[in-house]
Amino acid sequence: MTRTVDDVSVGSLLRGWRRLRRVTQLELALKADSSARHISFIETGRSTPSRSMVLHLAEQLDVPMRDRNALLLAAGYAPSYPETSLAAPAMTTLRAGLEQLLTAYEPHPALVMDGMYDVVTANRGVHLLLDGVAGHLLQPPMNAMRLTLHPQGLAPRIRNLAEWRAHLLERMERQAALRSSRPLRGLYEEVAAYPVPAGDAPAGPAGPGAAAGPPLALPLLIEAGGRVLSFISTVTTFNTPMDVTVSELAVETFLPADTETAAALRAAH
């Protein structure tokens, strides 16, 4: 069971993150160039950490930006990182850059997700895969995990659903633990409970264009347009973000894994 960080005092919050990361007080002290005694005093409330110390310890524990703000508030300080709506004027350049990136990736599917896997924007390559998906799954905010694993979503057309489902659930579980996020844990439990379509079995080769031998990475094999398409996905995040919203954005792209998929995408573009 994933441990969550519940207490609102800065010492207990830091202790929760330290235990979540499976780091001892001595190990954290060595990383932070401090002492185990000082770390103990902070955790028990006998010592109040400075603002810089809170941020330094959070950095050593790889605490997400949103939760670093929570640590600062618990210690009596103002949040350090803004959380700007993606629709805000200040985000105009970022939005334009993301749209340009997704358009440039066409005809290959690509999308941008937030920290809850809600789709912020997607290119036309993604829409090619959505034929037959139930309307309620396409209502905004469209959630990538629900869309993929729901029995009325993409799941019935994913030829290697057992492997792809296990990959997605492991990814979600890891993220929920790293962020100590109850909402993300709730989403994980929801999609993990979806029934798996009958007849799911390990898939064979995607088609004549599939590469011989073992794949370079786990492919997504999905039926679309009367054929099986094969993709390898990549996930990209922003380097050194300074805003909570930006820190939680991820760009997922799908690269054709065989020549048939590449040809099918070009023909449909």
Score class of each variant (00 low, 15 high):
residue 6 D to G: 09
residue 8 V to N: 09
residue 9 S to L: 03
residue 10 V to M: 04
residue 12 S to W: 04
residue 12 S to A: 15
residue 13 L to M: 15
residue 14 L to R: 01
residue 15 R to S: 08
residue 17 W to E: 11
residue 20 L to I: 08
residue 23 V to Q: 08
residue 27 E to R: 11
residue 29 A to P: 02
residue 30 L to M: 10
residue 36 A to E: 13
residue 38 H to C: 02
residue 38 H to D: 04
residue 39 I to K: 01
residue 43 E to F: 03
residue 45 G to N: 08
residue 45 G to A: 08
residue 46 R to D: 07
residue 47 S to R: 13
residue 51 R to M: 07
residue 51 R to W: 04
residue 53 M to D: 03
residue 59 E to T: 14
residue 59 E to N: 14
residue 60 Q to D: 01
residue 61 L to F: 00
residue 61 L to G: 01
residue 62 D to M: 03
residue 65 M to G: 01
residue 67 D to Q: 15
residue 70 A to C: 11
residue 71 L to S: 05
residue 71 L to T: 05
residue 73 L to A: 06
residue 74 A to G: 05
residue 79 P to G: 10
residue 80 S to I: 03
residue 80 S to H: 14
residue 83 E to I: 10
residue 84 T to E: 04
residue 86 L to T: 08
residue 87 A to H: 08
residue 89 P to F: 14
residue 90 A to L: 11
residue 100 Q to L: 12
residue 101 L to I: 07
residue 102 L to V: 04
residue 103 T to A: 14
residue 104 A to L: 13
residue 104 A to F: 04
residue 106 E to S: 11
residue 106 E to G: 09
residue 108 H to T: 10
residue 108 H to G: 02
residue 111 L to H: 01
residue 117 Y to K: 10
residue 117 Y to T: 12
residue 117 Y to D: 08
residue 118 D to Q: 13
residue 124 R to K: 12
residue 124 R to D: 11
residue 125 G to M: 13
residue 126 V to R: 04
residue 129 L to R: 03
residue 131 D to W: 12
residue 134 A to K: 15
residue 139 Q to K: 13
residue 140 P to Y: 07
residue 140 P to M: 09
residue 140 P to V: 08
residue 142 M to P: 02
residue 146 R to M: 02
residue 147 L to C: 04
residue 147 L to D: 00
residue 148 T to Q: 02
residue 148 T to D: 02
residue 148 T to R: 07
residue 150 H to E: 00
residue 150 H to M: 05
residue 154 L to P: 00
residue 155 A to R: 05
residue 156 P to F: 12
residue 156 P to W: 07
residue 160 N to M: 01
residue 165 R to D: 00
residue 170 E to F: 10
residue 170 E to C: 11
residue 173 E to Y: 08
residue 177 A to F: 02
residue 180 S to Y: 01
residue 180 S to M: 04
residue 181 S to C: 07
residue 185 R to N: 01
residue 186 G to K: 08
residue 186 G to Q: 14
residue 187 L to K: 05
residue 189 E to R: 15
residue 191 V to T: 05
residue 192 A to D: 06
residue 194 Y to E: 10
residue 197 P to C: 06
residue 203 A to Y: 03
residue 203 A to W: 04
residue 209 G to T: 13
residue 209 G to W: 06
residue 211 A to L: 15
residue 211 A to E: 12
residue 215 P to D: 06
residue 216 L to C: 08
residue 218 L to W: 01
residue 223 E to W: 10
residue 224 A to R: 10
residue 224 A to I: 10
residue 225 G to T: 09
residue 225 G to R: 13
residue 226 G to V: 12
residue 226 G to R: 14
residue 226 G to K: 14
residue 226 G to S: 07
residue 230 S to V: 07
residue 231 F to Q: 02
residue 231 F to K: 04
residue 235 V to A: 14
residue 236 T to K: 02
residue 238 F to G: 01
residue 238 F to V: 15
residue 239 N to H: 10
residue 247 S to K: 03
residue 248 E to V: 09
residue 249 L to S: 03
residue 251 V to R: 00
residue 251 V to W: 00
residue 252 E to L: 12
residue 254 F to G: 05
residue 254 F to L: 14
residue 256 P to K: 11
residue 258 D to E: 09
residue 259 T to E: 13
residue 260 E to T: 15
residue 265 L to K: 02
residue 267 A to H: 07
